[in-house]
């Protein structure tokens, strides 16, 4: 997904984005965005609706073509390293069982049958599903369970980069926090480079080590390093420092939206 001359990705960056622009049906969605995401980092992108954060994620995934700029990867072996994308909807195939939904990426890539069975069972357990859920169809699952299946499917390829597009936005708050903690537990052991888009500032602070606040057309308003170490516990959410970081980021967002309203 590179265009023009490809600059060398010299640093230990998993993803290096330079001067990226995306125009969709004559509307500028992203205008000249540059960004580096180091290997193994969890980056959260927050910003108002329509600021282009989901488009950025889709462009990184190769689902939306850029109109200018480059995206380079640390592993230039293939066009891009194995990616996984967790969408806002669970996007499960309704005619496939949980097991077959999780197997889909393996089927599409090379169809190696041997190691699959144990790998699927392992991921099912990892995301907090029961072995007994394997033969269920999506319609038999709750919203939270569907999301867990979606997550297991994303992890099945052991991706080099995990892209999360507001994955828990449709869930209730308690379920959302539970899934946040589960995801964090999984990430702490794998340290997969993760880029997550969310509306929820608290979620972003709890999960990520770096938060990018995005304004209109993908303009980066702030790049905030989160001062908490991993592993993080639920109690972190109630600390004063958490509240301060939350306020700092919310302030930037509010200032931006007030500025928009005044336009």
């Amino acid at each position: 997904m590179t265009r023009g001359r490809v600059p060398e990705n010299t640093a230990k960056n998993a993803i290096q984005i330079q001067d990226l622009g995306v125009i969709l049906t004559d509307t500028v969605i992203l205008d000249s965005l540059s960004l580096e995401i180091p290997q193994g980092q969890w980056v959260a992108i927050v910003g108002p609706s329509g600021c282009g954060k989901s488009t950025l994620l889709r462009t990184i995934a190769g689902l939306t073509p850029p109109s200018k700029g480059t995206i380079t990867w640390s592993q230039p072996s293939s066009p891009r390293p194995p990616l996984a994308f967790v969408f806002q909807d669970p996007t499960l195939l309704p005619w496939r069982t949980v097991h077959d939904n999780i197997r889909l990426p393996l089927e599409l890539s090379d169809g190696r049958q041997s190691a699959q069975q144990t790998a699927i069972a392992e991921k099912v357990q990892l995301v907090g599903l029961d072995e007994g859920d394997m033969n269920k169809f999506p319609r038999m699952l709750s919203g939270g369970m569907k999301m867990r299946v979606s997550l297991a499917r994303a992890l099945i390829t052991n991706p080099a980069v995990l892209l999360l597009d507001e994955p828990f936005a449709a869930l209730d708050e308690i379920l959302r926090q539970q899934l946040n903690e589960d995801l964090l537990r999984i990430w702490t052991t794998s340290r997969t480079t993760t880029v997550m888009v969310t509306h929820n500032v608290a979620e972003a602070i709890f999960l990520a080590e770096r938060i990018l606040v995005m304004g209109d057309h993908g303009q980066l308003l702030a790049d905030v390093a989160i001062p908490f170490t991993y592993p993080r516990q639920r109690a972190l959410r109630t600390t004063l420092q958490f509240a301060e970081v939350n306020q700092q980021i919310s302030e930037i967002l509010f200032t931006q939206s007030r500025g928009d309203a005044g336009k």
């Binding site: 889709r58 995934a61 190769g62 689902l63 990616l83 996984a84 994308f85 969408f87 909807d89 996007t91 195939l93 005619w95 889909l104 990426p105 089927e107 599409l108 890539s109 390829t157």
Partner: peptide, 25 residues
């Protein structure tokens, strides 16, 4: 479903795989 189509594209599904595993079902 465009979301499912994106999913297939992401995992490098060929047109034939998309037809067989997504469009026909």
């Amino acid at each position: 479903d465009p979301g499912l189509d994106d999913l297939m594209t992401l995992y490098g599904a060929s047109n034939w795989q998309k037809l067989w595993k997504l469009r026909l079902p």
